[in-house]
Simulated assay, not measured.
Amino acid sequence: MPLCVQYKEINGTRLTADIYLPSSQGKRPVLINIHGGAFMLGSSKMVSLPQIEDCLSRDWIVVVPNHRLCPAVNILEGPISDCRDLLAWIYDGHLDEFLRVQSEGSDGSTLVSCDLDKVMAFGTSSGGTLALALCFDVPRTPAAILNFYAPVNFSHPFWTSPLPHVAARLPGTLTEQFMKKVYDEFPVPSGGETSLEGQSVGPDFSRPRDAFAFTAIANGSVIDRCYPPPLDRTLIDPLVRVADGSFPPTYIVHGEADTMVPPELSRGLFATLKENGVRCGMTEVPGEEHTFAMRMVKGSATWQLQRQGFDFLEEIISGGNSTL
Results as ranks from 00 to 15, higher is better:
residue 269 L to M: 14
residue 209 R to V: 06
residue 203 P to Q: 11
residue 49 L to C: 07
residue 123 G to W: 00
residue 221 S to T: 14
residue 13 T to W: 07
residue 167 A to Y: 00
residue 55 C to W: 15
residue 92 D to K: 05
residue 263 P to R: 14
residue 277 G to F: 00
residue 313 L to H: 07
residue 198 G to F: 09
residue 80 I to V: 02
residue 25 Q to Y: 03
residue 19 I to A: 08
residue 269 L to I: 00
residue 320 G to S: 11
residue 23 S to D: 10
residue 283 T to R: 09
residue 99 L to R: 01
residue 133 A to E: 00
residue 220 G to R: 12
residue 282 M to F: 05
residue 199 Q to W: 04
residue 207 R to C: 02
residue 42 G to A: 12
residue 65 P to Y: 00
residue 173 T to M: 06
residue 240 V to F: 00
residue 155 S to R: 12
residue 110 T to I: 12
residue 165 H to C: 06
residue 122 F to G: 09
residue 76 L to K: 03
residue 267 R to K: 09
residue 304 Q to H: 13
residue 59 D to P: 02
residue 65 P to I: 04
residue 1 M to E: 15
residue 207 R to N: 15
residue 323 T to P: 00
residue 216 A to I: 10
residue 52 I to C: 01
residue 136 F to C: 02
residue 256 E to L: 15
residue 32 I to D: 10
residue 121 A to G: 05
residue 124 T to A: 07
residue 19 I to F: 02
residue 203 P to I: 08
residue 7 Y to C: 01
residue 153 N to K: 04
residue 285 V to S: 03
residue 11 N to E: 15
residue 157 P to G: 03
residue 67 H to N: 07
residue 9 E to Q: 15
residue 37 G to I: 05
residue 173 T to N: 13
residue 131 A to G: 03
residue 209 R to T: 05
residue 141 T to Q: 05
residue 49 L to M: 15
residue 120 M to D: 08
residue 281 G to T: 03
residue 215 T to F: 06
residue 105 G to P: 01
residue 63 V to G: 10
residue 300 S to G: 12
residue 67 H to Q: 06
residue 309 G to D: 02
residue 71 P to S: 04
